[in-house]
Design a binder for these strands. Sequence first.
DNA 1: CTGTTAGCGCCTTCAC
DNA 2: GTGAAGGCGCTAACAG
Lengths: 343, 343
Amino acid sequence: MLNFHVMKEGKPTTIKEIAKRLKISPSTVSRALNGHPSIGLVTTMRVKQVAEELNYEPNQTAIFFKQRKTFTIGVVLPRLSEPFFAEAISEIENVANERKYTVIMGQSLDDQDRERRILQTLKTHRVDGLLMSIGKNTHDYSFVEWLESANIPVVFFDCVPDVDHTYQVVSDLTAGMFEAIDLFVSCGHRAISLINGPVKRPESRERETAYRKGLERQGISFEQAYVVHTDLTQQGNEAAIAQLLTLPDRPSAVVSFNDYVTLDVMKAVRQRGLTLNQDIHFISYANYPLWKYMENPPMASIEQFPGKQGKKAAELLFELMEAKDKPQPSKTVFKSRLIHQNS
Amino acid sequence: MLNFHVMKEGKPTTIKEIAKRLKISPSTVSRALNGHPSIGLVTTMRVKQVAEELNYEPNQTAIFFKQRKTFTIGVVLPRLSEPFFAEAISEIENVANERKYTVIMGQSLDDQDRERRILQTLKTHRVDGLLMSIGKNTHDYSFVEWLESANIPVVFFDCVPDVDHTYQVVSDLTAGMFEAIDLFVSCGHRAISLINGPVKRPESRERETAYRKGLERQGISFEQAYVVHTDLTQQGNEAAIAQLLTLPDRPSAVVSFNDYVTLDVMKAVRQRGLTLNQDIHFISYANYPLWKYMENPPMASIEQFPGKQGKKAAELLFELMEAKDKPQPSKTVFKSRLIHQNS
DNA sequence: CTGTTAGCGCCTTCAC
DNA sequence: GTGAAGGCGCTAACAG
């Protein structure tokens, strides 16, 4: 267990004091404290001894200043209250912690201006590196170049900008979609719908492509009416499912954009008197941690491994920060996996 | 929208460069940049002009060093993946953000040693202030004195140490418990149980006291058998409800320690073939954001307002940091409130 | 092995 | 109004 020494004095001891006491030079003290090999064992011991007594603690702000390094990484993400990001940053913090770094974080709340302000602040604070998941409304990617010119290494994760020559860690939504459709088909479903997100978002496009291919693989023909979009608001989600339920050949299986959509949709379905996992079945993206407690959870979830993504992104960032010459820009892809609920 | 100027150079411009270009002294530049009144309007303008052109950005690490201030506050809490803390830190970040401060955070994961290590790191990073919710296993409060001697103002929130002369922001669990019991009684329940947390934890004691008083207010006599404890593991939670269900006069209503306990307990109840909100009713602490989607949520939740707590704690901290002479140690109490689920 | 010197970038007396 | 000088605490190049 660590020991906390309580100092009486207000003024923190400096390297100079120690030097004075020992009648040696500050540099020697500095070297001794940093285990420099060229310092005699005795001196080193004596210095450490006195440092201990005086309860010396190096003034990191001075060191940061001198070394042009802050041992701090910044994390910018949309919002912490999304379990996905909470989980991701949790792992990031772990990785940073192991390496004696601290984490400064900022939530963009999907507001582009706010996001830029956070970047400014983090730059001002001279973070040594940056992890970032961009907001849903960010379409101006000029900040990438700006960060580059400021020499701040960045790794994007999850929600990444459409810019070349960047480091990215993402999850491949396709694999999960295939698994989802395969599962549905193996359970006898043919009328499989997709409740997708906003049309402009890249994730939506990726999902739709995967959905089409997934059907094709199974020899099911694509029908436009089976794909609906939501703006991700509650109203939008309800409208989306409403639209599907009025189809002449009502879908018996639905893949939906994410768990929040699914929650709204399932509730709407219940309220219409349909029985979940009987009249209609769901699979959605994200794997909200609480599904396992629900009476009628989705059949399965397409897990995106926020923890793994965060960890990997952080590790990659540290590599970048340590590397003399930057490795090639890279894109790490984690295959999403279908997780079956065993309720 | 903010504008990002992209610099070609790697070396950030300093105050000196500007001075050189203008053939004036660095001090003048410094003063001009800081709007010092004694500088001529023209010079000021010209300085700002050049600063703009050269894309000058003050080196904060130098300023931190000189001013002995980092414009950074630390937040230590058990784990981000708990929605309560995610919500709290989210608000904290907001408050800090408004004041141009950044937030460094660390998760103790309820590990006392890890918690201390985080405190060390934060102190090393010279945070200007600290917000802290202590871990469940922290019983050694010596760090309080240690922080005090290091002159780092601290505000504790939610899970606070049992130490006098500290600043605390907490929620009063009693009010919610009373409301809960009143609600149960008004629905005709008499056999009301409490699934409490570990005996040693202060929150458990507080809950039990409130529970007793709550019953008393309603003229119901306290029975020891109706109070069971869980160690908050899944097994513990299941054991707790199992114990209650074997009572001769099975309780029809249960207040439980928190939502995680309730989730396990409700699941166990379902698995025994009992019907939720019919055979047995629940109220629990915390108001997990997803209750509203569940088919059979608890009747109500005792909301502890993590956002409000976080915000208040942060504001209090800023007061402390700005104050010349510290205000009296204080304990801000937010009354918990019963939130009815309208499923 | 150890001491001397210098300087990181900025601010702030103290002079003029 | 402006400049010169010094220093925050620490490290590192250069001398011994």
